[in-house]
Design a protein around this nucleic acid. Structure first.
Length: 522
DNA sequence: AATTCGAACAACCGCAGAACC
DNA sequence: CGGTTCTGCGGTTGTTCGAAT
């Protein structure tokens, strides 16, 4: 198995003298022994041939198309052409607002399961949906907006979920599998090391608590309580009209963004359990067994976190937990869905640290780091970890515990741990207190930052720590590299770190130093 | 008017599971 | 039961077009 390309190139070959093998519109194509398969755009003639073939023989056996018709296309190409353009009942044209709404909801639940999503959108193809989504992501990333409407986010954390006992979803190396199955970059160095490593304890009551050993792919990562990510005065797509979802109130506090930063950052997020919330296996489970695939829409089905965790060992929750939520709940205005999604731009950054836009958690860290780098002196005045309680800016949420524990586990030795700690601080549920109200958080972050981590121009980043890994990834794969290099440098301590990060031309963790055994870490 | 940029779309590629032999 | 082929999926890349500069 797994050799379809070869199979197709061999089966789908066409003799060079075929009347269709060269119509002057050959975009290259593959050739083997004088047999040329055409690539590139399909012509009307080719379409007609394919349509005729399907009429006669039905769908399937696509490799036979070339054999029977002489069409200079491989079976895979035929299938794609048919599925995306030629099959009947295909809807053409722009997505309707209803379709957009469905797509967003589906994506919130399924992730990048385009084919499954397409099954819920009659006449639409997975490719269409994928393209739509990808362009939407790009647009929103540029605008620094989150992908999902606040309602989705808020509903994703039903109140009772806050009270759920923390699902300790630890499945050993499954964490790695989950990530990889998501198609996300999963640093071997991390998972190899962390298979037996509970980096942070599960936080009771905090689904998605960053438990490094088991929560890497936890969809509960949205447990980074959306409500607490205050957003006001946030960036908004210029072309977006205000919508009900952007009109203020609670809707002004959507989830934190995981859209602003690039995929690498997202992947880094995932590495922390701040991941994309969906799990492919999860969706498989949901739709293969729990949900009638013919169900018009899966939001008819209630997925509670407790149910999920009762049924799944892995952290397999849809990204956004609906409870008693149907389509009607999120009923946007007819305008594009884009207009419904709030920017996650966290509250005002320190004046000395202008943020070009919302960036989401990690990017916030970057700006934070920038700020720190610029105000090291100021920070140092407060920089004794002992005078900082990671939880003190919170109001008793479980995440405070998390922060505290994280501090205990990480901050001692890791500057990145500091960042992680501040991360926790920043996104610790503050029960309604938006971040703009939490300017003190910046102080906290500053306080825990310890420039002494840079020693003789060499970063003391502890590569044992997943958070320490973040930097190299951001630096080269995130947007404006130069800026983020500097940011990363600041995050890691100073320009020496920046220099060190410049060496990274890829995100491969293989470039990192060997990992020590950390399985004995309690 | 020319250039640049982004959005939308089309198609290809590699991988993996299913089906078949 | 193992190998091969087929099919489907998701990611990525390339092209085109229109708007903005």
């Amino acid at each position: 198995m797994g050799n379809s390309s070869t199979a197709e190139s061999e089966d789908g070959v066409l003799s060079a003298d075929s009347p269709l093998s060269n119509d002057g519109d050959n975009f290259g194509g593959s050739s083997s022994g004088g047999i040329v398969l055409k690539k590139g755009p399909w012509t009307a003639a080719e379409d007609a041939i394919l349509v005729e073939y399907v009429k006669k023989h039905g769908e399937g056996n696509w490799n036979a198309v070339q054999k029977h018709t002489g069409l200079a296309r491989c079976g895979k190409s035929c299938r794609l052409r048919w599925a995306n353009h030629l099959r009947p009942n295909l809807k053409k044209g722009a997505f309707t607002s209803e379709e957009e709404r469905i797509i967003i909801e589906l994506h919130a639940k399924m992730g990048n399961k385009w084919a499954r999503m397409a099954a819920h959108l009659p006449g639409r193809t997975d490719n269409e949906i994928k393209n739509y989504w990808n362009t939407r992501i790009k647009r929103r990333q540029r605008a620094g907006l989150s992908l999902y409407p606040p309602d989705l986010c808020l509903q994703s954390l039903p109140e009772n979920q806050q009270q759920l006992s923390s699902p300790r979803i630890y499945d050993g190396d499954k964490a790695c599998d989950i990530l990889q199955s998501n198609g996300y970059w999963a640093p071997n160095i991390m998972f190899d090391s962390l298979n037996n490593f509970r980096y942070a304890p599960a936080i009771p009551g905090i689904p998605g608590s960053v438990s490094m050993g088991n929560g890497f792919a936890s969809p509960h990562s949205y447990g980074f309580n959306p409500q607490t990510i205050g957003v006001s005065g946030q960036a908004r797509e210029p072309d977006e009209p205000m919508s009900d979802y952007g009109s203020g109130g609670v809707n002004e506090a959507p989830m934190f963004s995981r859209t602003q930063t690039d995929s690498c950052v997202n992947k880094s997020f995932q590495s922390f359990g701040l991941c994309y919330p969906y799990d492919t296996d999860h969706t498989k489970k949901l739709f293969s067994s729990d949900v009638n695939p013919d169900t018009p829409f899966m939001s008819d089905v209630t997925y509670s976190a407790s149910e999920h965790f009762a049924n799944a060992q892995k952290s397999e929750l849809p990204s956004l937990q609906y409870q008693e939520t149907g389509l009607g709940v999120w009923d946007p205005a007819p305008e594009s869905f884009d207009s419904l999604v709030q920017s996650p731009l966290p509250g005002p950054l320190p004046s000395h640290c202008p943020s070009p836009g919302s960036s989401g958690l990690l990017e916030d860290l970057i700006y934070e780091a920038m700020a720190l780098g610029r105000s090291e002196n100021q920070s140092s005045a407060l920089a004794t970890p002992s005078n900082v309680s990671h939880g003190e800016v919170t109001d008793g949420s479980a995440l405070r515990t998390c922060s505290t524990e994280f501090k205990g586990c990480i901050d001692r030795n890791s500057p990145s741990g500091n960042s992680m700690g501040s991360l926790f601080n920043r996104y610790t549920p503050t029960t309604g207190k938006s971040l703009e109200d939490d300017v003190t958080m910046h102080h906290v972050k500053s306080e825990v930052f310890d420039p002494s981590w840079i020693l003789d121009g060499e970063s003391k980043v502890d590569y044992l720590r997943p958070d320490a890994m973040l930097g190299s990834c951001w630096v080269e794969q995130s947007g404006p590299a130069s800026k983020q290099r500097g940011s990363m440098a600041a995050l890691l301590g100073d320009t020496s770190a920046s220099a060190s990060t410049r060496g990274f031309t890829s995100c491969s963790w293989n470039n990192l130093p060997p990992v020590c055994q950390i399985s004995d870490i309690p």
